[in-house]
């Protein structure tokens, strides 16, 4: 069996200590070891964004991250974001604008959308589309997702 390693990190504001396989990716760790299933497996190759999480303030594809590399870092998943009142407006915007259909891409979309709002609060539709270029959605055609994020920018101008 493969080598294991101890790590300690902050997960949604709480310190977490785990022993993980050194080859395990952060997505499998979150879903199978920690048991937080809001972060989705869509492709395992960083092409779809369904597994997007926030690491030290930046979004990453958790499927491309080695779990051991989380050591000492600050991780926020959709569960953490959903518990943060600051994110309520964004979630409400997704609901209100019809940005959710099957919903499988939605947690990753919301994570990435929150990152766009954090880093570029004045983002226009084009900037939002570029910000979401790593998140695939098969249901909505993206328009309502972009509308939702745009409405949440600047507190809905």
């Amino acid at each position: 069996m493969s080598l294991k390693h101890d790590i300690e990190f902050t997960l949604n504001g709480v310190t977490k200590r785990l022993t993980v396989d050194v080859t395990m990716n952060a997505l499998d760790m979150l879903r199978d070891v920690v048991g937080l299933t809001g972060t989705k497996y869509g492709c395992g190759e960083g092409e779809c964004g369904a597994c997007t999480v926030r690491v030290d303030g930046e979004t990453r594809n958790s499927c491309l991250m080695f779990a051991v590399d989380l050591d000492g870092r600050d991780i926020v998943t959709i569960e953490g974001l959903a518990a943060d009142p600051k994110a309520d407006a964004l979630r409400d915007a997704f609901v209100e604008h019809g940005a959710v259909q099957c919903g499988f891409c939605t947690p990753g979309m919301v994570m990435q959308a929150a990152h766009i709002l954090d880093t570029n609060p004045d983002a226009d539709a084009n900037a939002i589309k570029r910000g979401l270029e790593g998140n695939l959605c098969r249901c909505t055609g993206y328009k309502k997702i972009v509308d939702a994020v745009e409405s949440a920018c600047c507190g809905g101008r």
Binding site: G46, G49, T52, N61, G131, G134
Partner: peptide, 9 residues
């Protein structure tokens, strides 16, 4: 280059 998430990593 790739996507925002990959550019961040």
């Amino acid at each position: 280059f790739a996507s925002d998430q990959i550019r961040n990593a």
